[in-house]
Design a protein around this nucleic acid. Structure first.
Lengths: 231, 231, 231, 231
DNA sequence: CATGAATGAGAGTTCATTCAT
DNA sequence: GATGAATGAACTCTCATTCAT
C-alpha cells in the first residue's frame, strides 16, 4: 500500500502492508514474498505461544524460539513486542470479518441474514476465546497501552466493518438509521458481555448457556425490527 | 472461615478468615484484632496504589511503601501478590453489594426497585472502572490465574448476592423462576458488555452512550416482566 | 546531610550523603554504617573493574560480580549505572582535593606553596590516569551525558576547591584577582593538556616528558607572579 | 602504501592505501578508482552520522543507511567499525594540516606566521569539536583500543606535520632546535587543554574564554622566541 | 512482627559481525 | 560488490519472593 521499502533493519514494514508495492522488479518481488512468509511464520509462532501461555507469559524470547529464531531476529519483522500484537490483532479481525461476511452472504436477506451475521460474530469469539483476549490486550486496566491512535482507528474500522451486515439488515427490515445504529451497538455489547462472562466462568454459575441466551436476544431484536415494518 | 492453613513458614492467613477462630483467649484476641487492622491497612494501600497506577504498575514494593512497610512484611499478611488482589476483589464485591442493596431498599417494590438495583450495579462499575478490572485481573487471557476454586466460589456467591435484588423483583413482577434467572444473567451480561466496551473506548466509535443504552435495555426488561403479570 | 532515609529500594541514597542523619537511633546507626560499608565495597569493585577494563567494558554485571553480588543487588545502592560513576567521580575529586591541600599545607607560603599545590594536582592525575578519565566519562563526544546539572555543579565546586590554593598563592604573590583567576585557568588547562597528551602517547612522539614541561610552565608562572610584586 | 593485507575473506584494504599498487592494468585501475570513490562515500556518510549523532549513537547500520548500503556492504571497504574511525581520523588530520598550511602561507614569515599557524590549529578544533573527539575515540580510558601501531605512527606523522610550521617559525625567530621542539609540544598541550576544558564546559566555570587565553599564551610565546634573537 | 539484604530469573532491545546467495 | 537474513552476546533494569536477624 505504501512504499515501505525497509532498507535497513528497523523500519520493519509496519503491520498492514504486505507484498503489494507495485515495483515489479521480479527479484525484489521474490524477496518480498519470502520475507512476508517469514513474517507470517513469526506471527504464527506468536499466536501459538500466546494461545498456550497467555499474553504476559509470552515473551519475545518464547516467540523467537517457537519460530526457530534468536530474539534479535524478530526485530527485522516487527518493531516491538506491541507491534507483534498489533499485527496479530489485525489479522484476527480480518478473519472475523471474513467469517461474518461469508455467513451473511449465504443467508437470505432480512431476518435470516441478520441472524447469520450476528451468529457468525458471536460464534467466532466463542470458538476462539483468545481472539477476544487479543482485542483487549492492549488495554491494561482498561486503559490503552501500546495502542497508537492510528492502530486504534484501523481496528475500529475493521470492527465496524464486521458489524456492518447486521446494520444493513436492520435497515432493510425497516429500522431507521439511528435506531439501527443503536441496536447494533447494543447487540455488540450483549455479545461481548456474554462472551466475557462465559470465558471467565461467570455464566456457569447461573446455570445458563451463552449461546442460548444470545439466540434469545437475537429473537427479540428481530421482533423489534419487524415492528418497524410498514411504517 | 477455614483453619488458616499455614502452609508456608509465614502464617499468611488466606484471605477470607478474620478474627474468628473461637479460642477466646483475650490476649490472642487482641493480637488478632491488631493483625486484622494491619491487614486492612495494607489492603487500603494496595487499593490506592492500584487505583492510581493501574494493575501492572502496582508492584509489591509500591504497596508496601504506601502502607509504610518493607516488601517482605506484606508476606505476613498475604501469601502472594495474587492473594492481595483476591482480597481486594472480595472487598470490592462487598462494596458493590452494599451499594446495590442500599439503592434497592430505597425504592418502591416492583419495577422501581428493579430499576434501582440494576442501575446501582451498572453505575458502580461505570464510576469505578478499576473495580471492573479487579474482577478480571485474575484472568490472564480469560483463563484463571491465581484463582483457587474456593476463592472463585466465594466471589461467585458475592456476585449472585449483588444480583439477587434484581432477581427478586422480577419474580415479584410475575416472572417465573427460570425466566427470572435467565433475565438476570442476560442483564448482567449486557451491563458487563456495555461497561467493557465503554472503558475500552469501543462505544464512542458508534457515537453512543453506555448509560443511555443500559436504560433502554432496562425499559424493555421491565416491559417483558410486566407481560407476565396476571398470568 | 539530608534525610535520605531510603525506605524502599530505589531512593538508594543519592551519592554524597553518608552516615550522618542525626537520628541517633543506635540500631539504625549500625545498619546505616553497614550499608555504607557495602556501598563502599561496590564502589571499590566498580573502580577496580573500571581501572582494569575501561569505562565501556565495565558493565553492571561485571561490577556486581567483582563485588560478589547479583546485578540486581547493586540497585539497592545506586539508582543507575551513571549514579555509580557519579559517586566514583565525586570520591576521586575528594581525594584530589585532599592531596592538594595536604601538599600545600606542607610548603612555605608564596612560590613554594604555589609549586606544591600545582605539582600535587598534576601528579595526582599523572599517577592515576583513570581518575582523569573519570572526569571526562560523562562526556560522550565531548557532550555531557548522564550529567545532571546538580552533579555538574558539585563537580565544578570540588574542582574549584582543588585549585583554590593556587589562586590564593598567586594573590599572595601580588597578582590582582582577575589575573590570578586567568592564570589559574590557564594552569589548569596546561596541566590537563599535558596529561591527556601524555596518556594518549602523543607526547612521546615529541620526545618530551610531561613532568618536565609542567615544571617549566610553573617556573614561568612564578616569574610572572613575581613581576607583580611591589606594585 | 602497504600490500593491502587481505587477512580475512573480505579484502577490506586497511585504511591508508589508496589507488597506488603500481600495477597499471587499465581495467584494474578503473575498478580501483571506483572502489575508492565508494569508500569515500561511505566515509562521508560516517562523518555526517558521527557529527550529527555523536560517537556512540553512530552505529554501522546508521552509516550504511546514510551511504545507501546495507550494513554488510561496509565490510568490503573497512575491516571493522574501528577501521572506519581510523580512516575518519586520518582524513580529519589531513584537513587540519591543509588548514594550518594555508593559514601559514598567507602570513608573513616570523611572528605573524607563527601566530597564523598556531591560531589555525586552535580554531580548527574549536570550530569542529567532533574532530577533536575523533582524535580521542580510539582511546578508551586513555588506553589505545583499535589503534594498530601502524595507524598510530601515521597519525603521529600527520600531527607533527600540522605543527611543523610553528616549529619552523620558532627556529626562524632564533630559537634553538631543542627549545623549539619543547615549545611546540607545550603549545600543542596548551591548545588541547583549553579545547577539552572548553568543550566539557569546564572553562565557563572560571568565567574565562578559551580563545582569549590561547591568544595570551601565544603572545608570551612570541616574546620568548624574540628573546633568542641576535643570540 | 518487621527489617534489610539479596536472589535469580527474566524482561525487551541493540549491535557488530558473518555469510550464502 | 552487495544484499538480506540471521546470530549471539551483551546490555540495563525490574520484580516477586525468601530469610537471617
Amino acid at each position: 500500500m505504501s512504499p515501505a521499502a525497509a532498507t535497513a533493519r528497523r523500519p520493519a514494514r509496519k503491520s498492514g502492508d504486505s507484498a503489494a508495492d507495485a515495483t515489479a522488479d521480479p527479484r525484489r518481488l521474490r524477496t518480498q514474498a519470502l520475507a512476508d512468509a517469514r513474517r507470517a511464520l513469526v506471527l504464527e509462532a506468536a499466536r501459538s505461544a500466546f494461545f498456550e501461555l497467555g499474553m504476559d507469559k509470552t515473551s519475545i524470547r518464547e516467540i523467537a524460539q517457537r519460530a526457530g529464531y534468536t530474539p534479535g531476529a524478530l526485530y527485522s519483522y516487527f518493531a516491538s513486542k506491541e507491534d507483534v500484537y498489533g499485527a496479530l490483532l489485525g489479522e484476527s479481525l480480518a478473519r472475523l470479518d471474513a467469517q461474518v461476511r461469508s455467513a451473511a452472504g449465504a443467508a437470505a436477506a432480512g431476518a435470516p441474514r441478520l441472524r447469520a451475521a450476528a451468529g457468525a460474530f458471536f460464534d467466532f469469539y466463542r470458538a476462539n476465546p483468545r481472539d477476544l483476549d487479543l482485542g483487549f490486550y492492549l488495554f491494561q486496566g482498561m486503559k490503552p497501552r501500546g495502542l497508537t491512535p492510528e492502530l486504534n482507528d484501523a481496528l475500529n474500522a475493521r470492527l465496524l466493518q464486521a458489524l456492518q451486515p447486521c446494520r444493513d439488515e436492520l435497515r432493510r427490515l425497516g429500522m431507521p438509521a439511528a435506531a439501527a445504529l443503536q441496536e447494533v451497538t447494543a447487540l455488540f455489547a450483549h455479545a461481548v458481555g456474554l462472551l466475557v462472562l462465559s470465558h471467565t466462568g461467570r455464566i456457569r454459575m447461573f446455570r445458563q448457556d451463552s449461546a442460548g441466551l444470545f439466540r434469545r436476544y437475537l429473537d427479540r431484536l428481530v421482533e423489534r425490527a419487524g415492528a418497524h415494518e410498514g411504517s
